[in-house]
């Protein structure tokens, strides 16, 4: 899957905005939004929030977890523990990137947040590599991956799955008459 498609999914997450215009309720196919009144917070999907922000029609209220102090705590916990800690948003990486790139002026301590999220990401990806390594070494057939986010899975997907398939092919070719001539994509 392309990373931009993961970002596309993240854009469905809801975020609070403070509009500077008024508009009646809108009836989208995917659900109702609004009504919009100047100065009153309202929840909209990220894709709409970013568009309105670009047209200077709203201020974005950062999600609760997007706070330097909270993220620092998460970073410390992530570094302390060997397993993946529960993360406050399943799309923390994409949302941080989207909101900081397009609405940094609405987010206090934006630069600190950028660094903290990057640190959390790096720590988690290092763990992911380690566990993928032991998964392959011990020739496991099943792994539980709670708390892993879609973007994290996606960074390792192609490489890990292709390697596993190659190894499977090599192994099954040792037993005559099985597993030959199978496609390995998808």
């Amino acid at each position: 899957m392309d990373p931009s498609e993961v970002e596309f999914l993240a854009e469905k997450e809801m975020v609070k905005i403070i509009p500077n215009f008024s508009l009646d309720k809108i009836y989208l196919i995917g659900g109702d939004l609004g009504p919009f009144n100047p100065g009153l917070t309202v929840e909209v999907p990220v894709w709409l929030a970013l568009n309105l922000k670009q047209r200077q029609k709203c201020r974005i209220v950062p999600p609760e977890w997007m706070d330097a102090d909270k993220l620092e705590e998460i970073r410390e916990q992530e570094r302390r523990e060997d397993t993946f800690t529960p993360i406050p948003s399943l799309h923390y990486m994409e949302l941080t990137k989207l909101l900081l790139n397009h609405a940094a002026d609405n987010i206090p301590r934006a630069d600190e947040i950028r660094t903290l999220v990057k640190d959390i990401w790096d720590t988690r990806i290092a763990k992911l590599r380690l566990s993928a390594d032991s998964f392959i070494n011990q020739q496991e057939a099943h792994a539980r991956l709670d708390n892993l986010t879609l973007m994290e899975i996606n960074t390792t997907r192609t490489f890990l799955l292709d390697s596993l398939n190659c190894m499977y092919k090599l192994r099954s070719n040792l037993q005559p008459g099985s597993g030959s001539g199978k496609a390995h994509d998808y």
Partner: peptide, 11 residues
């Protein structure tokens, strides 16, 4: 033509 490989790993 190769068959789909049902033994692939998936998330």
């Amino acid at each position: 033509v190769p068959e789909p490989c049902l033994d692939s790993f998936v998330f």
